[in-house]
């Protein structure tokens, strides 16, 4: 079953080998902006995954009818439609998270990760591989956001997913970690750590 394996590979590559944030440096803006707590990271990751799956599916379905010259505006309008759906959904059912994420939910429209999947994959492949590719990319995005959000929340407020881990008597929170500077520093060090591990493994072979 060769086709089965290739489908699985389309899904798998987004999680590690072509991870949007760590390897491709796409979608940096939400990855840095909303990861001051693990919950916010998870919500942003899931909303972006929803948008990337839906827009990849639609782009793949209409790929034969869209003239090349207007394809980018077409993709932007498709993506903007799904982002509006996600935004209204969050506002209706999770008002607290929606308030915490603020204008970063509508800003999913300009997340280059989603545009990247539409332009480089979904516009050239059938529907099923496109959905799996988007699902893999979304999963890769979610785990990076949750890891980054957890690191910053543990160090910055001594808790994870809102549950206190380190009480204030034994641990003074590093407030800087939940401020913008902490986002740049922790993502920089996370990518450096992954580079270090990859390079060491390549050196061992």
């Amino acid at each position: 079953m060769t086709s089965q394996r290739t489908l699985f590979q389309e899904f798998k590559k987004g999680i590690w080998a072509e991870n949007p944030v760590i390897k491709m440096l796409l979608g940096m803006c939400p990855a840095l902006a909303v990861t001051n707590s693990a919950v916010n990271g998870l919500a942003m990751g899931l909303a972006s995954t929803f948008v990337v799956i839906c827009s990849s599916a639609i782009v793949s379905i209409i790929r034969r009818f869209v003239p090349g010259g207007v394809r980018i505006p077409t993709y932007i309008i498709i993506i903007a439609g799904f982002v509006t759906l996600a935004d209204l959904f969050l506002r209706a059912y999770f008002p607290v998270i929606s308030k915490a994420l603020g204008p970063y939910v509508p800003l999913i429209v300009v997340n280059c990760m989603i545009m990247g999947r539409a332009e480089f994959f979904a516009s050239k492949h059938p529907v099923v591989p496109s959905i799996l590719d988007a699902l893999g990319t979304g999963t890769g995005f979610v785990w990076v956001l949750v890891v980054l959000g957890s690191i910053r929340e543990i160090l910055g407020s001594g808790s994870i997913f809102g549950v206190t881990l380190l009480s204030e008597r034994i641990y003074t929170p590093w407030v800087v970690m939940i401020l913008p500077a902490g986002a740049f520093l922790s993502l920089g060090l996370l990518i450096a750590l992954i580079n270090y591990l990859t390079q060491r493994r390549q050196g061992a072979h």
């Binding site: 740049f184 520093l185 920089g188 580079n195 270090y196």
Partner: peptide
């Protein structure tokens, strides 16, 4: 250092700039 080359170094510099702008 090799693991810091490229994006990680730029992000660390940006972090220090953000600290300065605070």
């Amino acid at each position: 250092p090799a693991p810091l080359k490229g994006a990680p170094m730029t992000l660390l510099v940006a972090g220090m700039l953000a600290l300065a702008f605070m």
